[in-house]
Amino acid sequence: MAPTFPLADMMKLSWQMGMMVVEAQTVMTLRTLGMMGVLTPHPQENQRMVAEKGVAFAQSAQAAAMAAMQGKHPHEVAAAALQPIRRRTRVNAARLTRAAKKPRG
């Protein structure tokens, strides 16, 4: 008999994944606009963009490994892996959106 997963947990994971995708696209768009000169990014934005990736992915891998070692269900392992990445995309999208709303000058 195949294991069953609570529908609410699967829906929550799907929602979190969708939000992460939207936030990541927002971040990529705002950073691209900054590189094109349409927006005025923080001087360290490009360095931040590169430096944060390794940390976020390491945290994601560690969270997934810990969840798997604890015997959690696959959707729980996926949710644990997604959490550090989603946290970063949410923070970046909010920060870059606030910065984009400020007048240039």
Rank of each mutant, 00 (worst) to 15 (best):
residue 53 K to I: 15
residue 37 G to M: 12
residue 45 E to R: 00
residue 44 Q to S: 15
residue 46 N to V: 04
residue 31 R to Y: 01
residue 52 E to N: 06
residue 55 V to C: 04
residue 38 V to Y: 14
residue 30 L to F: 11
residue 28 M to G: 02
residue 41 P to W: 02
residue 33 L to C: 08
residue 26 T to Y: 02
residue 51 A to R: 11
residue 32 T to H: 06
residue 35 M to C: 15
residue 30 L to W: 09
residue 50 V to Y: 07
residue 25 Q to I: 00
residue 51 A to Q: 09
residue 32 T to N: 04
residue 27 V to N: 05
residue 30 L to T: 12
residue 41 P to S: 04
residue 54 G to I: 09
residue 54 G to R: 07
residue 38 V to W: 13
residue 53 K to M: 12
residue 44 Q to I: 11
residue 32 T to W: 01
residue 56 A to T: 06
residue 35 M to E: 12
residue 38 V to P: 10
residue 37 G to D: 10
residue 31 R to I: 00
residue 25 Q to R: 05
residue 40 T to K: 15
residue 25 Q to T: 01
residue 52 E to I: 07
residue 44 Q to P: 02
residue 48 R to F: 09
residue 49 M to G: 00
residue 52 E to R: 09
residue 27 V to S: 06
residue 53 K to F: 12
residue 39 L to W: 12
residue 57 F to W: 15
residue 48 R to T: 04
residue 49 M to Q: 01
residue 40 T to M: 08
residue 44 Q to L: 14
residue 26 T to M: 12
residue 29 T to Q: 10
residue 27 V to L: 05
residue 33 L to W: 08
residue 42 H to A: 15
residue 27 V to Y: 02
residue 29 T to G: 04
residue 53 K to P: 00
residue 55 V to G: 09
residue 38 V to Q: 15
residue 42 H to V: 08
residue 47 Q to P: 03
residue 56 A to I: 05
residue 30 L to E: 13
residue 53 K to N: 11
residue 52 E to T: 10
residue 29 T to W: 03
residue 52 E to D: 07
residue 40 T to F: 03
residue 57 F to T: 14
residue 36 M to I: 02
residue 35 M to T: 12
residue 39 L to K: 14
residue 28 M to S: 05
residue 39 L to T: 09
residue 37 G to A: 08
residue 43 P to I: 07
residue 42 H to N: 13
residue 37 G to T: 03
residue 26 T to L: 10
residue 36 M to W: 07
residue 25 Q to N: 07
residue 57 F to A: 10
residue 26 T to C: 11
residue 39 L to G: 14
residue 51 A to F: 05
residue 52 E to P: 02
residue 30 L to M: 12
residue 40 T to L: 08
residue 57 F to M: 15
residue 48 R to V: 05
residue 25 Q to S: 09
residue 56 A to E: 06
residue 47 Q to E: 11
residue 41 P to T: 01
residue 54 G to T: 12
residue 51 A to P: 03
residue 47 Q to C: 06
residue 50 V to C: 04
residue 57 F to V: 15
residue 38 V to S: 12
residue 49 M to W: 07
residue 41 P to N: 04
residue 54 G to N: 11
residue 38 V to G: 11
residue 45 E to Q: 01
residue 53 K to H: 06
residue 49 M to R: 03
residue 36 M to S: 13
residue 33 L to E: 12
residue 34 G to I: 03
residue 55 V to I: 13
residue 53 K to Q: 13
residue 30 L to V: 11
residue 49 M to C: 00
residue 39 L to D: 13
residue 53 K to S: 09
residue 34 G to P: 09
residue 29 T to Y: 04
residue 41 P to G: 03
residue 50 V to R: 14
residue 42 H to W: 09
residue 27 V to K: 05
residue 29 T to K: 07
residue 48 R to D: 06
residue 44 Q to T: 10
residue 43 P to R: 14
residue 28 M to E: 06
residue 28 M to W: 04
residue 55 V to P: 02
residue 38 V to T: 14
residue 40 T to V: 10
residue 36 M to E: 11
residue 46 N to K: 10
residue 45 E to N: 00
residue 28 M to P: 00
residue 39 L to M: 12
residue 52 E to S: 11
